[in-house]
Each structure stands twice: as structure tokens, then as C-alpha cells.
Design a binder for these strands. Structure first.
Lengths: 138, 138
DNA sequence: TTCGTTGCAAACATTTTGCAGTTTC
DNA sequence: GAAACTGCAAAATGTTTGCAACGAA
């Protein structure tokens, strides 16, 4: 792994990722930090995201409508992706699924760095709105 | 859901997806069918993939190096993605994880269509090659 | 004849990258 | 001073889309 210098902006990217549970896009992080650093660049977000992923500090959750969603909170949990509104929620992890990794590694003779469990469907809010709009149409 | 006509090429796309366990990219499917249909088009692959996904006949497994990987075999199983060579393997599903969906739906008041479990790491072959090349360098 | 499907190529959107200037050590 | 980091904008890449021709019902 190559040598790294300290970087204020890199720290800021990680801090933003750790401060939210919205599982933001690169663009979202960019807009957020553009306020504090007027000369901030989208390239910096992408470059540091790539770095964080290498280091295991950040993980790709899912690609929603063509945009990758990132998570800086690496404690063990799953995700739910709403196909209507595109929001991504944390879902409590059942059991110690970290041991899944070891199990798979042993079974398939491979090295497992991490896993990603995603549920896809319609979230509570969108279900309700769907129901309400249907009811109005009757 | 809208009305559908029969289409030879659409059938062919689905057949290809069901005939392989390589979890191909759109491009791969395109190249494969280009042989049988010289006037075959990449747009047709994408359009039909979108359709199949709506219908639940095909599922997006993971995005590997910027390309989406598809699976036409929808029986319950997980996947392993090798970060070195980019191959995607089937992994036997432990337990009846279909009931996960119901559990999540009840807990979070949402509708769950399906879920996706992916393990990321280094596959057996790539581990071995890595080891061999290291050994030679000593 | 109607309308779904396709080929083709242009358009699109996100992500990556090259380079020159800046910051870290 | 050397090497890492960044801004900027251009390039790259995978995917989507508009339109005219084609095929199914």
C-alpha cells in the first residue's frame, strides 16, 4: 500500500461519509463540501472514495439509478433500497453475519474481504403514498 | 404491465442468460448473439434486460469494473465476486433466505421484492497465482 | 393496419484521468 | 526539494434514447 500524506479535504470526505446515514452519492458529498471549500472538486471525491474503498474504510452499497451509493459506517448491517424514491436505509443485521465470510472462505477456498446484503423493494413511505393516491382516484 | 409481442431476439437474450453461469455483461450477451444474428444490436440487449428485470426474470448481481453483471437463474443463491479477475461465482445459499424478505418486510413495513447477497474477495485461482508469482520472485 | 420491436448512431451521465499548480513532510 | 494531493476540464465508458424501418398479431 502506497505512502499517504495528510490531507484536510480527504479527512473532510471521510467525516461527511461517517456523519450521515443517507448513503450518499459522490455528487452529494461534493455539494456538501463545496460549501466549506469553495475550490473543492468532484475529482477529489472520487479519488478519495477509491482510496477509502481500498482501505476498507468505505464500502459501495448499491448503484441506484446509475449512481453509486457509499457507506462510511462499516459496522455489520444490511441495506434496503427503495425502487420508487431511491432512498437507502440501514437494516439491522440478523445474527453474526461476519462469520458468513469465514464460512464462504473455507467452503470455496477463497479470501473474503467483506460482503454486501441488499434488499430491494418499496419503502414504507412510498407504499403509503401509492395507497393514498390510489384511494383518491376511486 | 404493458402488452408484449413475441420476439425471436428477446427469447434469444433470455436463453443466453439462462444457459450460462458466468453472470455476463450486456456486451458479452451482445457478442454472443451477434454470431447468430449479424444485425443484432447492443440496444436490444439493454432494452430487454430492463424488461426482464421488471418481470423478475433476470437480476442484477453486481457492478464489476463499471459493468453490470446479470443473472438469469433466479433460484435462491448468493454470489462471490473476485476483485482480481472480476469473475462472479454462484455461492450456495445457506438456509431459506427467501424468508429473510418477509422478515424485513414485517420489521420495516416495506415491500421486499428480492434481495442480493454478494461476497467480495479473491478467488481460489487468483490466490494461487498470486502465491506462485511471489514464490518465483524469492 | 396497428403497435410493439429493432438497428443504428447520437446523446447522456457518471466516473476517470492528465497536467500544472499546491501542499505535505 | 521530492512526492503526494488537488482543481480543472477533457476524455473515457457504459447505458439510454429518438427515429425510421421492420415484424407480429
Amino acid at each position: 500500500m502506497r505512502k499517504l500524506n495528510f490531507s484536510k479535504k480527504r479527512d473532510a470526505v471521510l467525516a461527511v461519509l461517517r456523519s450521515t446515514n443517507t448513503h450518499p452519492t459522490a455528487e452529494w458529498i461534493y455539494q456538501r463540501l463545496k460549501v466549506d471549500y469553495p475550490d473543492f472538486s468532484l475529482g477529489t471525491v472520487y479519488r478519495n472514495l477509491a482510496l477509502f474503498k481500498e482501505q476498507g474504510l468505505v464500502v459501495s452499497v448499491a448503484n441506484v439509478n446509475g449512481q453509486e451509493r457509499y457507506d462510511g459506517i462499516t459496522s455489520c448491517h444490511a441495506h434496503f433500497v427503495c425502487k420508487k424514491c431511491g432512498s437507502v436505509f440501514d437494516v439491522d443485521c440478523m445474527g453474526d453475519s461476519r462469520s458468513f465470510d469465514d464460512q464462504i472462505a473455507r467452503l470455496y477456498n477463497c479470501e473474503v474481504d467483506h460482503h454486501n446484503l441488499c434488499f430491494y423493494g418499496t419503502c414504507e413511505r412510498c407504499r403509503t403514498e401509492l395507497f393514498e393516491s390510489k384511494a383518491q382516484n376511486v
